[in-house]
Every structure is written in structure tokens, then in C-alpha cells.
Design a protein around this nucleic acid. Structure first.
Lengths: 229, 229
DNA sequence: CTGCCCATGTAAATCGTTACATGATTAC
DNA sequence: GTAATCATGTAACGATTTACATGGGCAG
């Protein structure tokens, strides 16, 4: 369903062909819901069948491009979906974090490589979405320009701020992932080997419940300093 | 593929039946890759066909429970998957953020409701994963206890720290989402209506390139204060 | 005229969700 | 004895990926 409305949302600001969507989508709603061209073409056909968009191929266009524009019903359905408050959230799906979770049986170099790749990936994401967010603040972002065109002038600041916040979410996500990776790498640096762990990332708590039975005696004062916040 | 290895990873520390996985999975790898029981049962059958796990139903068990345990080949394949470094990352898929992106055409109350629900959801997540992370630090987390059981004692701190970091990622994610929502709500409070935007979340940059043609004259000093960091 | 990008698709396979079925056990 | 929970599944559908097909335009 979400791809359906991501495409519909994109088309709510500007008409576009499937190919154009395949490329420009990535900088708009496609940043939050990525899809391959093959799926986009299928979904556009379905949206047209549903009457939420209308496609038109110019007779003189040798490349038989089909340009879609949103219909009145499309705008209505989009609004309904966007404002709907269902309690079902998407299921969490994070393959990289699953990998990390079971990486503790691997060697230090393999762990380090994984975390370094993670950091690099999100550093690039951070740069990308930072730039994108700035383009919104500048008013140079293409889709924002289209959106502001048919928007009451008095509401322009509001719309701009909303779009800015949307991409700010991606910036924050990237920043939090780089920070996470950074803290792990810093901690890994303090480990000579898996047997030589100099610091723990957390304040030791009632660890002795593990070794002896629980005694009701409080934990000894921490011997190691915490590191990650 | 990821569900396959999330299940395999779970079974790498302790044998379990499909039903047990359906419930306990959620606190382990299932936190990063959620799945419904119907899919778990299917995937377990496939894993058994592949010879990565072995299932056994006790003859005297009236409930014909099938308990699966990982095989040697399963451990090998798990390690290969975990350490594999392919450049293909999972596609981004965030329906809530797509919703927010197109919420700018809705009224302030609808926007506020959406963001408040977002905040509430991640506050609950934050609480949940904070507790989980603490259980790991305490050594009381069930799966960690199993994992440490067949682990050289000298490596226990290392493994504990790795598991802690894994769930620390979820804690940070939840914290960043609540922070994002909080900042949007604070900003919304400053807006009397869509036409009365008192503050912008960013430092105004070269906004005038939008209204007049680019002149080469530098931007006027900002008239509004930034708010979100 | 050859290779590459434009532009749109289709087919098959896999992954994931929804709805339903079944029988056994446990708590009241 | 009856309702809830235990425990395992199956069938149908929808979403997504992978691989391939096609035909026009354009640069060398």
C-alpha cells in the first residue's frame, strides 16, 4: 500500500512519466520508500485502474512515454491514507542489525569491518540528506518549488518547514547510525582481543546475580568506567 | 533471506520449537526482523530441508511439538551470512515518514495527532529497549545467559558488550524518533495557523533566489531565529 | 552501423500477510 | 464442560525481486 501512496503523493505535486518517477522519485518520497522501476510501472498501472491517476501518451511521442497526473479522487484517497490513524505499524526489518547481533562469534577484524562499513554508509547518507535539507531551506529543491507553486503564498513557510522536518528525520537517522558505529569502534579500540576487554560500554549493575545466587546485597562499586552514553 | 538467518541465529544459542520462537523471538533477533508465526513455521521447514537445522518431535509429546536445533552446517552458513560484505543494503521503507511527507496539505490538528502518535510509539519502544539493554548489562537476559553458557569465560564480557551494543542501537533509534517528534511538536506550538508561522526550524538561507531572479547580492540577515538543532 | 541510453514493460520466483483449520491441554 | 491457550500448519493473496524483452533515438 505504501508504494501506492508514495507514488500518488509524488504525483500530487507534479505529473510525471514512469521513467521520470523511477529517477526523481528517489529524491522525494522514494527516499522513504524505495522501489525498482519494474514495480513502479506495475503500481502506476494499478493506480490508473483504480482511477486515482490518469495516464496520457502524446500521439506524436515516438518514445510512447506515458505521463500520469493525479485525479480528484486520487487527491481524496491520498488525504485519507495520509491522515488515517491505524495502530498497525510496519514491522521492524533491519538486516544489518541482525547481522551485528550474531557477529559476536566472529573475529575482531570481521566485526570492525562490519561496523566501519555501517559508518561509511550512513556518513554518505548524512551528507546526502543534509544537502537535500539545505536545498529545501534554500527553496531550490525541485519538488518543493512545484509544491509551493499551487500553494497560497501565506502558507509557503509552513509547507517549507514541514518538508524540511520530513528530511530532517532522515538526517537524524543517519547521524544516530554514525554515532552508534563510532562508539562501537571506539570501544573496539580498547579491546586487545576478545579476552582482553578493558572497558564495558555500560555501568556494571548487579552482575553477581549471574555467578552467585541473588543475595540482596547491593552491587560492588563499578570497577570500570562507562564509555558510550 | 534475513528471516532465515534471524531464526538460525536464534537457534544458534538454544534449541526451540516453532511456537517458542514465535513468542521468544520477539525479544531477540525478532526485535530487528519481526515475523508472524505462519511465516516462521514455513521458514523452519525450509531451514530443515536445507539441512541447516534438525527438528525432532518426542514420541511421547501429545502436543507433537517439533524442537529444532542448529546443525554444524547451519553454524557454518550463519557465520558466512553474518560476515558477508555485500554492498546491497536493504531498501529504505518507512511508511510513517511517507505519511508525514504528504501531511502538509492537512490541517494542524491532523498533523499534531500524527506526530503525537509517533512520539508515543517510540516512547514505548524506548522504555522497552532500555529495559532490555539493562537486562543484558545485568546478565539477566535469557538469551544472553544461554549464549554465555557455551562461551569461554574470558570472552563473556566481550559477548555481553556486543549484545548490549546491538540493543543500544534500538534504544538510540527510539530516542532519535522521540526527539524528532518533540521538536516538531514544539515548532507546531509556535504556529497559530498555517498562515502564521512564527519560527522556522532552520536558518533562512538564500531564500530570495526564489522570488526575484538571482542577483548576486547576498542574502539579507535572518529575521527569524532557528529552533531545531 | 554499432553500442549505449531512453522508456516501458512482462514473467517467474520469492517473500510476506491474512484468513482459516485443527486438535490437544489447561484453568475455571 | 467450556473457554482460553498451546501448537502447528495450509491456502490464497499481495508485495517485491530478478531476469529478461523490446523498440526508438543518439553519439561515435
Amino acid at each position: 500500500m505504501s508504494l501506492r501512496f508514495a507514488l500518488l503523493g509524488f504525483l500530487s505535486t507534479t505529473p510525471a512519466s514512469g521513467y521520470t518517477l523511477g529517477r526523481k522519485f528517489a529524491d522525494g518520497a522514494g527516499a522513504m520508500w524505495e522501489a525498482l522501476p519494474s514495480q513502479i510501472y506495475l503500481e502506476l498501472q494499478r493506480l490508473e485502474d483504480l482511477g486515482l491517476i490518469e495516464g496520457e501518451t502524446a500521439k506524436d511521442d515516438k518514445l510512447r512515454r506515458r505521463v500520469y497526473r493525479i485525479t480528484k479522487r486520487g487527491r481524496e484517497e491520498l488525504k485519507i491514507w495520509v491522515e488515517s490513524e491505524s495502530d498497525e505499524r510496519q514491522r521492524e526489518r533491519d538486516a544489518e542489525r541482525v547481522r551485528f547481533l550474531f557477529l559476536d562469534r566472529s573475529g575482531l577484524p570481521a566485526i570492525r569491518r562490519h561496523v566501519e562499513r555501517h559508518r561509511l554508509h550512513y556518513e554518505q547518507q548524512l551528507e546526502r540528506w543534509n544537502r537535500h535539507r539545505d536545498d529545501i531551506a534554500d527553496g531550490t529543491q525541485e519538488r518543493l518549488v512545484d509544491r509551493l507553486a499551487d500553494c497560497p503564498p501565506r502558507e509557503r513557510d509552513f509547507v517549507t518547514a514541514m518538508k524540511w522536518f520530513a528530511f530532517d528525520g532522515l538526517v537524524r537517522r543517519a547521524r544516530m547510525e554514525t554515532g552508534w558505529a563510532e562508539d562501537i569502534l571506539t570501544w573496539l579500540d580498547t579491546c586487545g582481543s576478545k579476552e582482553e576487554v578493558a572497558t564495558l560500554p555500560f555501568e556494571p549493575r548487579r552482575r553477581e546475580t549471574n555467578r552467585r545466587k541473588a543475595t540482596g546485597i547491593d552491587a560492588a562499586p563499578p570497577k570500570r568506567r562507562s564509555q558510550a552514553r
